[in-house]
Simulated scan of single mutants.
Amino acid sequence: MKYKHIVFDIDGTLIDTEYAVLHSLQETIKELSGRKIPCPELRFALGITGTDALKKLEIKDTSYAIELWDKNMRNYTNTIKVFDGIIELLKNLLSLDYKMGIVTSKTREEFTHDFCPFGISHYFKTIICADDTQEHKPNAAPILKYVELSKTDHRKVLYIGDSKYDSKCAENAGIDFALAVWGSHNKHIKADYFLEKPANLLSAITSEKFY
């Protein structure tokens, strides 16, 4: 098989957090500065660390802002769900002996609080969070850290994400990239594979032409 490791981003790829992230960020900015920024203008924050997003918004006290954002995010937990087809995909990948991992811009604490409650974290052996590298997406460091810890050949890794930051991270690391179209608003992002739904991954990576 061409790939041995299938590595996922979290937000916009495994779980649908867009509404929660954008609305809680909107509330946070309004509380901190009085500005009400339309949610579509905040989409740049999807796929990068919270700290980096706040810096782009020229928020100086990012530590306090992160705490406030986390608090506001809890008000939207009922809007977050695992994307349709993801659990079936993970089960199928496991049955085919693929190794699965995660490279996310979430901190380890955010991973524990925001992702683990969905009960699918056991599928992933190697998990790289924002705390694990000094540089973050779109820099190559997070995926290179995954390659290092999983002790694999980077040519055997496929990264799946929904944002231009994910795509650039993979490109910078020399890793093949699949765009999770089901969670992305931009089909013009550079990718080796374009997946309309999770089930499309299996047909893409098991097709004879990829062997």
Score class of each variant (00 low, 15 high):
D162K: 03
V181I: 15
I160E: 06
G174I: 06
F177Y: 13
V181C: 13
A170F: 05
D153H: 12
S167G: 09
I175W: 02
C169G: 07
A173R: 01
V157R: 02
L158N: 00
E171R: 12
H185Y: 14
C169L: 13
Y165A: 06
I160R: 07
G174D: 06
C169A: 14
N172R: 15
S184M: 11
K156D: 15
D162T: 06
N172S: 14
L179C: 05
W182G: 09
K151S: 14
H154P: 10
R155D: 14
T152C: 15
A180Y: 00
N172I: 04
W182Q: 08
F177W: 02
K168V: 10
Y165Q: 07
L179D: 05
K156R: 14
K164V: 12
A178W: 00
G183W: 10
H185S: 15
D153L: 03
S167A: 15
A178E: 04
D166L: 08
Y159V: 04
S163C: 10
K168R: 15
K151V: 05
D176T: 00
D162C: 09
V157A: 08
K156N: 14
K164H: 12
S184F: 02
Y159F: 15
R155V: 00
V157N: 03
D162V: 12
A173Y: 09
N172Y: 01
V181F: 12
G183E: 11
K151P: 00
W182M: 11
A178R: 01
H154K: 15
V181P: 00
Y165V: 03
A173N: 08
K164R: 13
W182A: 10
V157L: 10
K164S: 13
D153N: 15
G174N: 10
K168G: 00
K168Y: 10
L179T: 07
S184C: 10
K156Q: 14
E171S: 14
W182T: 09
A170L: 02
K151A: 13
A173L: 02
I160A: 06
D176H: 14
T152N: 11
A180D: 07
E171M: 11
T152Y: 04
G174P: 08
H154S: 12
K168S: 12
K168I: 13
V181L: 14
Y159W: 14
S167Q: 04
R155K: 14
G183D: 08
K156E: 15
K164M: 04
W182D: 03
L158R: 01
S163Q: 05
S184I: 08
Y159Q: 05
K164Q: 12
D153C: 13
A178F: 01
S184W: 03
L179V: 06
I175D: 03
A170T: 05
S184P: 08
S167E: 04
D166V: 06
L158C: 09
V181E: 13
I160L: 14
A170W: 08
W182E: 09
D153R: 04
H185D: 15
F177E: 01
F177H: 04
Y159M: 06
W182I: 08
T152W: 00
A170N: 07
L158I: 09
A173G: 12
A170E: 04
S184Q: 05
A180K: 02
N172A: 15
S163L: 07
Y165S: 05
N172T: 10
I175C: 11
G161L: 04
D166I: 10
G174T: 05
Y165I: 10
E171A: 12
D153Y: 02
R155M: 02
A180N: 02
I160C: 07
